Amino acid sequence: MNASAGISFKPQHFDAALSTAADGLWFEVHAENYMIESGPRRAMLEQLRAAWPLSIHGVGLSLAGDAPPDAEHLTKLRDLVTAFEPFLVSEHLAWSRFGDTCFPDLLPFPRSAEALDRITANINIVQDALGRAILIENPSLYMALDGHEMEETEFLNTLAYRTGCGLLVDVNNVHVSANNMDFDPRAYLATIDHAAIGEIHLAGHGVDPALGDALLIDSHDAPVAEAVWELYRDLIAEIGPRPTLIERDGNVPEFEALIAERDRAAAILAHQREPVHA
């Protein structure tokens, strides 16, 4: 499909999602909410898929964990992808499982050569199981870790080169991490492999109650900040249109408010498609 703008699907928006006439719209869902065989939630997704393209975004494969992806989880994901034929499948550069314990978070890790080999192997396992390439999303960072042997963009670029996966660039994550870890977000976006970018996420963030602006939180509970829109506009001007998602998980507004943000992203994408006249 052509690069266009979508929004993260919320069940309370089901009727509006089916009745809207937004041109080029698509929806993203979290895989783990739909890895079931039947029931109202699954039936809802079937109707949504009949009307609009879908992207499936995983949060539970724990690709940076110390073990291969859980076999049962991966089988359920494969079955979901087979059933709904999403145009994109993505996951996070993070871990969330240790042994039989699952953590409700996307946790950081030292970017070492050992971690690179382990995550490369895990991505290959997932792609072999799904029969397709996936996209890997850059994380939000909140504290310095010991043991890093390479910059994050080098790590992501190398993963893409070794596995053939694509990259999902969350521009809000870049902004949050740059603020918290004191680096230049534009330098980050300049050094990531532009050819590997298959999708972009835009979301809102908040501030830490105690530290304020010194520590931004990737909360997904607010409109996209103007600083993130500026980074996005500049990135699209540099790399060209890519599928772009408006991501909202908390303080979810009415459907029309999300469509308005989505339309803003769509306008930026459309501007880059306009022919240049001498």
Rank of each mutant, 00 (worst) to 15 (best):
A225W: 11
L80V: 12
W229Y: 13
T120V: 00
G204C: 03
A83K: 11
H277W: 09
N180M: 01
H271L: 13
I246Q: 07
E46A: 15
A51P: 03
R111E: 01
A129S: 15
P275T: 07
H30Q: 09
D117L: 10
H277A: 14
L235N: 06
N138K: 09
F255A: 05
P185S: 12
A265F: 02
V176F: 13
D15L: 13
A257C: 06
L25N: 04
Y142Q: 10
N179R: 15
M35Q: 12
V169K: 05
A160V: 01
L159D: 02
I268F: 11
L211G: 07
P11L: 08
R262I: 02
L80E: 11
G65W: 02
G166V: 04
A222Q: 14
D184V: 14
A222W: 07
N138I: 08
E247M: 07
E46P: 04
F103L: 10
D193H: 04
I136H: 05
T120K: 06
T244D: 05
L135R: 09
L116V: 04
S19G: 11
R162D: 01
I239Y: 07
F84Q: 12
N122C: 01
Y142E: 04
L189S: 14
H205D: 11
L116N: 08
W95T: 06
A266T: 01
M143E: 03
V174L: 06
L88Y: 11
L202C: 00
V89F: 00
A260I: 07
N157D: 01
D70M: 01
S219E: 05
A178Y: 08
R132N: 05
V252N: 01
G240S: 11
Y232A: 03
V169L: 15
S4M: 04
A3K: 08
N173P: 10
A50S: 14
I123F: 04
W229Q: 03
T163R: 08
D184N: 15
N124C: 08
D79M: 12
L48N: 09
R118K: 12
I246G: 08
A237C: 03
H73C: 05
L145W: 10
E254H: 10
R41W: 14
F14P: 03
G65D: 10
V59N: 07
L269P: 06
L74M: 00
I136V: 14
A187L: 15
A187K: 15
A237E: 09
E154I: 01
N2K: 14
P53M: 05
Q272E: 09
G131Q: 00
P253T: 03
Q47F: 02
D263L: 07
D249W: 11
P253K: 00
A266F: 05
R132Q: 02
I56E: 01
P68E: 13
V228A: 12
